[in-house]
Design a protein around this nucleic acid. Structure first.
Length: 256
DNA sequence: AGGGAAACCCGAACGC
DNA sequence: TGCGTTCGGGTTTCCC
């Protein structure tokens, strides 16, 4: 849909969206450049041009959509690309959390990403080896994009629930069986998310229906769908963390 | 090395 | 009704 299209110009309405490049330099660089490929690396969209890449991270509230001519910029539009065919590629982002890079060196943006969960090279054994090579609480480790790429807060909570692992377990206490369960749970949760076009949470609705299939996320005090115990919400690594205290046992609660 | 905190943002949903 | 406060996502940066 985008491959082969030429960007004739770009308007930057919120310069804060751009990382490490001025709006002027960005608009100048992208003029009359053809999109050669559209790729994805974990949470990053990669628009490939002949001399550089444009990476886009939607974060929470970002949206990248094609608008047909005629189109006038709307509220929260941060960057609008005009294409040669007259249509527009619009980056809209309510919370201004999304980021855009223009760089000739992709390593600058995606160089530190850990393995993709769906990569053929990523196996349960490798996950186990990586887990026990760290001494960290497992949930923040799963959120660490340099450890494993692509999991966010929702998917981490859901994957830990499905694999029956407490979010505060230390990574080097995870045995091989548990790592296998976690590996499988990650695949299941991500596939579900993709199948339902992602999740819209909070009041920022961007499509998707995975929010209707959560087991623990945003279900504080509601019964566990397996055992009926109320789901607990705590804060781990500054992140809201939801789990079933019965299905995911095993955290010493910190007095000793 | 790990972990905590703060910063970046907005607007819904509170409490008073 | 109209204030003020809290919240949450992903990431970076700083500090212990």
């Amino acid at each position: 849909m985008l491959v082969g299209k030429v960007i004739t110009s770009a308007s930057v309405f919120w310069p804060g969206t751009l990382e490490k490049i001025s709006a002027e330099q960005f608009m100048l660089s992208i003029r009359n450049q053809k999109i050669l490929a559209v790729l994805r690396w974990a949470k990053y969209i990669d628009l490939q041009f002949s001399d550089f890449h444009v990476f886009i991270h939607l974060r929470m509230s970002g949206d990248l959509v094609i608008k047909e001519h005629p189109y006038s910029p709307e509220k929260h539009d941060r960057i609008v690309f005009t294409m040669e065919d007259g249509n527009f590629l619009v980056f809209n982002d309510t919370r201004k959390f999304g980021r855009v890079w223009l760089t000739s060196n992709p390593e600058d943006v995606i160089g530190n990403l850990g393995p993709e969960p769906f990569s053929p090279d990523f196996t349960p054994a490798e996950l186990h080896a990586k887990l026990i090579s760290h001494h960290r609480m497992i949930k923040p480790l799963l959120l660490d994009q340099s450890f494993l790429s692509g999991l966010g807060n929702i998917y981490s909570d859901e994957a830990l629930f499905l694999s029956k692992i407490h979010p505060q377990r230390n990574s080097d206490t995870i045995n091989l069986d548990e790592a296998v369960r976690l590996y499988q749970a990650i695949q299941v949760v991500l596939n579900n998310g993709i199948e339902h076009n992602g999740a819209s949470i909070d009041w920022v609705y961007r499509g998707g229906s995975f929010q209707n299939h959560f087991h623990v996320y945003a279900r504080e005090n509601q019964p566990c769908q397996f055992c009926g115990t109320p789901i607990i919400k705590i804060v781990v690594g500054q992140r809201g963390t939801h789990f079933c205290p019965v299905c995911q046992p095993g955290i010493p609660s910190g007095h000793f």
